[in-house]
Nucleic acid binder design. Structure first.
Length: 607
RNA sequence: GGGGGUGUAGCUCAGUUGGUUAGAGCGCCAGCCUGUCACGCUGGAGGCCGCCGGUUCGAGUCCGGUCACCCUCGCCA
């Protein structure tokens, strides 16, 4: 530990002393993790970020030191000075890195007392998340959380070094920008100097980084905070961090290669895992066909098989009506699972299917004689039954789960079941990493509410060169030059090659139902910039929070964020969001339509 | 906005069919203890059973509502 100031409170950290420090006189500072008072001798486990060390206050210690040690309580901040001694034979602690030694205390100073903590940061039992978030400073004292944030710091360092070595320039972009009604809901900030006008916090620095390319910066990178006012999930926060990247004079391959090298470095340095390049690439269409999802977990098989052709002769009403209305019959085969799933288990799977939007779920078990059994088996007809058996390559004892519905619904249903079964049946190693690209996304998808075309990625995505003509003739089949990075079934990043000419950009705006005037008003600066010498460019954004979660094998994004928000986007520690003075509102020219809550009526947990 | 789960001591939880004074472990406080490391032993304090209402002779337990937290669908270009 280097001295950072002239007032040296400590000579070493709590985690660094070893037997090579024996007989040295040291001073440690930290938090009292535990006190074991044996009257004549007191042991204090002193803890800091670097580790734990045992302080011994024996009968030889000065009386006032003994007294102070006896007074010390959990989480008090103390400094202890003494000689590094070897622990007596039989009293070493192999569980501690410093377990060979102890500090024989000659002086002890209480730097700060502490109230009894709401929970013990050193305890094995993890408190409920509400308690952890309310007392986040205590939660962050826990070794797990300290390791998580350390991991995050290391990953961000790897990212920064990687892009620095490749000549990328870190440029900051504004947090106060203009609202764009497309995409996610914006967080708004009222303008004091222009009443009735609002800034929006960035959903991503998308347009700014494109303008940096047009300005000639060539290679841009930023660790960028992004804000989206949408509902939360275990892997979603209203404010999150992206590693934002943009490059000029590149095609998709140039961008993905840069990221692939980063994936390899990160996996090697963090997990000591070797990832071979190039990463597998699946097209979006292939993903939907084989896995029913655009970010499939490829750590296991359980692929979807299309049975539409095999079942078209069937009189079974469920299959027939699905196909007649333009849908599909598709299924997955769960090998050897027939016996593992009782009627009750299958009811649960059916409920999951219904939850995913299906009308029901067809399940079939292949018996020893090679015949399908199950409530609808007799409705199939022998030809169709045999077709299904062949198509699925089913063996006696196998379970088939079949969904007959629109293509979209079968995707959703079978994806849900696949994900559930993969985990439940332990079909993969939880700690393994599978990284791949999903490419050739469609440019557009129908917006279900309005029926209009909506950009699948964002409105600045370049159409696939081969599909340029389809942009007008057949937008539904026009592919985009887009690529998503998928790790273990989680979207860990996504990017596109951008439109770099004004005419194409205007055409895409038109298709999205953004009128000429509206486009001019909202994106005029982009259109002007595009017609002022815009280089071909493209980029990607990586979700840093998700990367840390995935590389740290954690289940919640909140565990890799120092001060996260709850599902209702509130901060239990500070009480944000909170009420403001009417005076503040008046200055901003803002009035709320809900009367201010009386004191004590707020949701705030702050006393 | 919809579905599901949880809410009992500071923390983690148990609490039977609705029935006496709501329990345990950890923590806290006091005492004892010279080699512990989840120290040990003895004693003690600590409860708006989330909140509001209802049913009942009687509610932690049943019913309705509500709030918070978590998971999830919608949503997240």
């Amino acid at each position: 530990m280097r001295k950072v100031s002239r007032i040296v409170l400590r000579t070493h950290t709590c985690g660094e002393l070893r037997s090579n420090h024996l007989e040295e006189n040291v001073t440690l500072c930290g938090w009292v993790d535990r006190v074991r008072d044996h009257k004549g001798v007191i042991f204090i486990d002193l803890r800091d970020r670097w580790g734990k060390a045992q302080i011994v206050i024996g009968p030889d210690a000065p009386a006032e030191v003994m007294e102070r040690a006896r007074a010390a309580r959990s989480e008090w901040v103390i400094s202890a000075t003494g000689r590094v001694g070897r622990r007596p034979e039989g009293t070493t602690n192999p569980k501690l890195l410093t377990g060979e030694i102890e500090v024989v205390c000659s002086d002890l100073e209480i730097l700060n007392e502490a109230d009894t903590p709401a929970f013990q940061p050193g305890a094995k039992e993890l408190p409920g998340e509400e308690v952890r978030l309310k007392n986040r400073w205590l939660d962050l004292r826990r070794t797990d959380m300290q390791n998580n944030l350390l991991l995050r710091s290391r990953i961000v360092k790897i990212m920064r070094d990687h892009f620095d070595e490749l000549g990328f320039i870190d440029v900051e972009t504004p947090m106060l920008g203009r609202s764009t009604p497309e995409g996610a809901r914006d967080y708004l900030v009222p303008s004091r100097l222009d009443h009735g006008a609002f800034f929006a916090l960035p959903q991503s620095p998308q347009l700014y980084k494109q303008l940096l390319m047009i300005a000639g910066f060539d290679r841009y990178v930023q660790v960028a905070k992004c804000f989206r006012d949408e509902d939360l999930r275990a892997d979603r926060q209203p404010e999150f961090t992206q590693l934002d990247v943009e490059m000029s004079f590149v095609d998709a391959n140039d961008v993905t290669s840069v990221i692939e090298d980063l994936v390899v470095k990160t996996a090697k340095k963090i997990l000591d895992v070797d990832i071979s390049l190039p990463l597998p690439q699946l097209t979006w269409a292939e993903c939907m066909d084989r896995y029913g999802h655009d970010a499939p977990d490829l750590r296991f098989g359980l692929e979807i098989i299309d049975l539409t052709e095999d079942t078209k002769e069937s009189d079974f009403r469920v299959f027939k009506s699905a196909v007649e209305s333009g849908g599909k019959v598709r299924g997955i085969l769960v090998s050897g699972a027939a016996e593992k799933f009782s009627r009750k288990d299958l009811d649960v799977l059916t409920a999951m299917a219904v939850d995913a939007g299906a009308k029901g779920l067809v399940w079939l078990k292949l018996d020893a004689a090679g015949l399908w059994t199950g409530p609808v088996a007799k409705n199939l007809g022998s030809v169709v039954a045999e077709n299904i058996r062949t198509a699925l390559d089913a063996k006696p004892g196998d379970l088939a789960l079949i969904s007959a519905d629109s293509f979209d619904v079968t995707c959703k249903t079978l994806h849900t079941l696949r994900k559930h079964l993969g985990k439940k049946l332990n079909m993969y190693d939880q700690s393994s990493m599978h990284v791949s690209w999903v490419v050739d996304f469609p440019m557009f998808a129908r917006d279900e509410e309005s029926g209009n075309w909506a950009a699948m990625h964002h409105p600045f995505t370049a159409p696939h060169p081969e599909d340029l003509e389809k942009l007008t003739s057949n937008p539904a089949e026009c592919r985009a030059v887009a690529y998503d990075l998928v790790i273990n079934g989680s979207e860990a990043g996504g990017g596109t090659i951008r439109i770099h000419d004004r005419a194409t950009q205007q055409k895409v705006f038109e298709l999205l139902g953004i009128s000429h005037d509206h486009a001019q008003e909202r994106f005029g600066f982009l259109l002007d910039a595009l017609s002022s010498g815009a280089p071909p460019h493209g980029g990607i954004a990586l979700g840093i929070d998700r990367w840390v979660m995935l590389f740290g094998q954690l289940d919640s994004i909140r565990d890799v964020i120092a001060f996260p928000k709850t599902q209702r986007a509130s901060d239990l520690m500070t009480g944000a969001p909170g009420q403001v003075d009417t005076k503040q509102l008046a200055e901003l020219g803002v009035r709320t339509i809900i009367p201010p809550k009386a004191a004590g009526e707020t949701n705030s947990n702050v006393k």
